[in-house]
Design a protein around this nucleic acid. Structure first.
Lengths: 338, 338
DNA sequence: CACCTTAATGCAAGCCCTTACATTTTTCGC
DNA sequence: GCGAAAAATGTAAGGGCTTGCATTAAGGTG
């Protein structure tokens, strides 16, 4: 057992180094405002005492925390995890810290988490998608907390975002699919009600159908929660439909993988009997058999750029610049001609 | 643009409600110490002002934060993500907040993150595995921050943990594999140097070999970083070995899936030519084809229990109770008899 | 070498809450 | 309806840090 010595404070460091607390504070935060010899004395004292500044006190006095909050629907999802990891790395490189919270796709929880992060002193927030209660945006504006959105990019939107055009991406894929002769299309989507990305992807397909002279109402549409098993169940539903769709789009790769598994279990050949198309291009997509045709989203780049934009804003006062990233269609083996 | 009104403080709420700050504070933190009418007045004022308490000030004054820090090697890993999600849910249920940080498997980063979380006022910490610089434990003891370990359980260990016995779990699997006639065993492991879980799993196989009268030095052993591609590459290495192993253990499912993919690419039949065994039983394991034989780890339960233990300690002063969870062998299709 | 900059440091006022303790109000038994 | 105990509220002292301003030391100039 270590004897319970009290936690050292700035004051302790100051006494030990024989200077004032102000000098210690400056030695830590603005090293070049302090003479070299003094700085060294301070550093020695800090090391000897094992001092580390109290975050709360610091936040209170300085009115900033060098902390950026991020709120994602769930951590249990490789998609967000990867982007977030890149985001965090970028922040760290610049001396900022990331705080994460997850909402389990519940709007109420999101609001709560936003408040919590703001109360914790987050200097800015990264949020997924545009859609949320205007009151939340008002609150954030009132608190003067900059917000960057991500995972979506809508040229019309007023809020800055770093993301990609979900609708256009899906539309491009749908055009290809239609171009290969498919006419009876289906979609397994995440729940669109609170999720503008899911809604936009759905919309993309409809647009492609209309453009190709197909009636977009013939799109066979199932909404479901996130998960492999959910994707499988949804696939069953679609296959019960008459006439059977020949191409099944999925709102994300996880759902697609579930559909693919169920197809195998049911003895439905992919892409012989039915084509399956994913979205995101997570690692999983290359691992399943047959490998998944999907829309590649540059998650890491998105996370990194989002970090960059936020850091530039906070550190240098540069306005939050919207950035549109490009997705890419990846043709593997689950899509075939009709 | 909202006019930039200043962020309301406790004082503002107090004035508005016509009471003292102490009363407001109590109305928020200990509602039943305050008369109902007063409480209502306060709540109204809070709502009207959109007040939310300043976390830093609160932490400083109360010397606790109701925050628990968790540090994981990486978020880009379904395994940790799932356990963590459950951990967080349990904390939330009890009014605690989780703060996550990831280390990218670098011990230095871990130390830095630990300091950062402590400085941020984490009331306790959840860390993965036992192995780390004793200086870190000393620091934590000195700061009086309780630490719970997880993802591992060693009956001999002095630090409390909520986890499972990595070695015994792998040993049980290895015994089965040996019982099926396999003699030439191989292991694709995560890097064991800083990772006691990986080391323990490796050890489990060796123990089983010894117990079965095999020379544990004949275990064909490859270490690699985490990732599907890494698993694939490691598999190549193993297959180049003469005589070829007939059963390939993998330190985790992700590596196993990589191995499986490469086997397919190389035309090596699984389990006909070689059996592949994973560890963790993430969703992925059921999705790949053939479905992966693996060791099931109750990640969600682990996260939940860890949260429970920590909450009980912080709230009711109950000592951190070690809990050993049971793993389970899951036989699917990648393991066959020799 | 006196005088003026400029660089380094110190002083002390906050920042916003919580809580021990003091004070006032309510409740209740008789 | 009185007094004592219990409940509700108020007062004010921190808690550890940053930073504007004042002060002192160092450097430059004619």
């Amino acid at each position: 057992m270590t004897s319970q010595r009290p936690i050292p404070t700035l004051q302790d460091v100051a006494s030990r180094a024989g200077v004032s607390t102000a000098t210690v504070s400056r030695a830590i935060n603005f090293p070049d405002q302090v003479a070299e010899v003094t700085r060294d004395k301070v550093n020695v004292a800090i090391a000897e005492l094992g001092y580390s500044p109290n975050f709360g006190a610091r936040a209170m006095a300085a009115r900033r925390t060098n902390t950026i909050g991020a709120i994602i629907p769930t951590m249990e999802n490789a998609i967000f995890a990867r982007g977030l990891q890149a985001f965090q790395e970028e922040l760290r490189r610049n001396g900022f810290t990331m705080l994460v919270a997850s909402t389990a796709y519940q709007p109420d929880t999101e609001e709560e988490q936003i408040r919590s992060l703001v109360a914790r002193g987050a200097d800015a927030l990264l949020l997924i998608g545009y859609h949320r209660d205007p009151a939340i945006y008002e609150f954030l504006d009132a608190q003067d907390v900059p917000v960057l959105l991500t995972w979506a990019f809508d040229p019309q939107a007023t809020r800055p975002s770093v993301g990609f055009n979900n609708s256009a991406a899906m539309q491009a894929m749908a055009e290809k699919v239609i171009g290969m002769g498919h006419r009876r299309l289906a979609l397994i989507s995440a729940e669109t009600a609170q999720n503008d990305r899911a809604a936009a992807r759905c919309d993309g397909i409809r647009q492609a159908m209309t453009a190709a002279g197909l009636d977009s109402d013939t799109l066979c549409f199932v909404e479901t929660k996130y998960g492999i098993n959910e994707g499988a169940a949804a696939f069953d539903q679609l296959m019960a439909h008459e006439p059977r769709p020949t191409a099944v789009f999925c709102g994300n790769d996880v759902l697609a993988v579930g559909a693919l598994r169920r197809a195998r279990e049911r003895g439905i050949a992919v892409p012989g009997d039915v084509s399956i198309i994913g979205f995101d291009d997570i690692e999983l997509a290359q691992v399943v058999y047959p490998a998944l045709t999907t829309v590649h989203v540059p998650h890491r780049e998105m996370g990194r750029k989002a970090g960059e934009v936020l850091v530039n804003h906070l550190r240098d006062g540069i306005a939050l610049t919207p950035i549109e990233l490009q997705t890419r269609l990846v043709f593997r083996d689950t899509l075939g001609p009709l």
